[in-house]
Amino acid sequence: MKKFKIGELAELAGVSRRTIDYYTNLGLLKPERAESGYRYYTEDCLLLLKLIESMKNQRLTLDEIKGRIGDLTSNLQGVIGKPHGLDLQFLKQQFKLLENQMAELQPLVNNIESGQGVVATRVVLMRSMTLMQSLILYLSEVTPYL
């Protein structure tokens, strides 16, 4: 797995080194330490950083983001111990949840004024993107165990 120094990670993710330091201090990112003391960030950290930035763009607070990442991590830890690593039932449940949310919201979107419909559609899309990004992160974590 490729490892990045903080400057490389910052450039790839489009954030500042200071932001990465801040997230690391909050416990959102967990770098590996080399014998020399340098911090190295894995590709998983890059994916997680992009997920964090996406959630921030959806106006989630860092506490909310930390909670969602914690929930995702808890689900991952439960899945990794399974015989084949990948819990397809978990993925099916997440996709079904997304489908149900979209089905519930569609009539509401159809019955509101066009300007409000655009706003509602954007909110639904942002939530859907968060779920999809979480699933991508989930898959990237469990795939090595297959």
Rank of each mutant, 00 (worst) to 15 (best):
M1D: 07
M1F: 07
K2I: 12
K2Y: 08
F4K: 01
K5T: 14
G7S: 12
L9D: 01
L12M: 13
G14V: 11
G14Q: 10
S16T: 15
S16F: 01
I20T: 01
D21H: 10
D21S: 01
D21I: 01
L26N: 05
L28T: 03
L28D: 02
L28I: 11
L28N: 05
L29H: 05
K30T: 15
P31D: 01
P31I: 10
P31H: 03
P31W: 04
E32P: 10
A34C: 13
A34I: 14
A34E: 14
E35K: 08
S36C: 10
G37W: 02
R39I: 13
T42Y: 00
E43D: 14
D44Y: 11
D44H: 10
C45F: 00
C45W: 00
L47M: 14
L49E: 02
L49W: 05
L49A: 08
K50L: 15
K50H: 06
E53S: 13
E53P: 00
M55H: 02
L60W: 04
L60I: 08
T61I: 11
L62C: 06
E64I: 04
E64G: 04
I65S: 07
G67V: 04
G67H: 09
G70S: 14
D71P: 00
D71I: 04
T73I: 13
T73V: 11
S74C: 09
N75I: 07
N75W: 01
N75M: 13
L76P: 01
L76V: 10
L76G: 00
Q77G: 02
Q77S: 12
G78K: 08
G78D: 08
G81N: 11
L86G: 00
L88N: 09
Q89G: 10
Q89S: 14
Q89V: 11
L91Q: 09
L91G: 06
Q93E: 15
Q94T: 13
L97S: 13
L97I: 04
L97Q: 12
L98S: 04
E99H: 05
A103H: 01
L105H: 03
Q106S: 10
P107F: 05
P107K: 05
P107G: 07
P107C: 10
P107E: 11
L108T: 03
I112Q: 05
I112E: 04
I112R: 01
I112A: 04
I112P: 00
E113P: 00
S114M: 09
G115K: 12
V118I: 14
T121G: 12
T121L: 11
R122L: 15
R122H: 12
V123H: 03
V124Y: 00
L125T: 10
R127G: 07
S128H: 02
T130Q: 09
L131C: 02
L131M: 09
M132Y: 04
S134M: 14
L135W: 01
L135K: 03
L137V: 09
Y138C: 07
Y138R: 08
Y138A: 06
L139Y: 14
S140A: 15
V142F: 08
V142K: 06
T143D: 09
T143K: 15
T143I: 13
Y145E: 09
Y145R: 12
Y145F: 15
L146S: 08
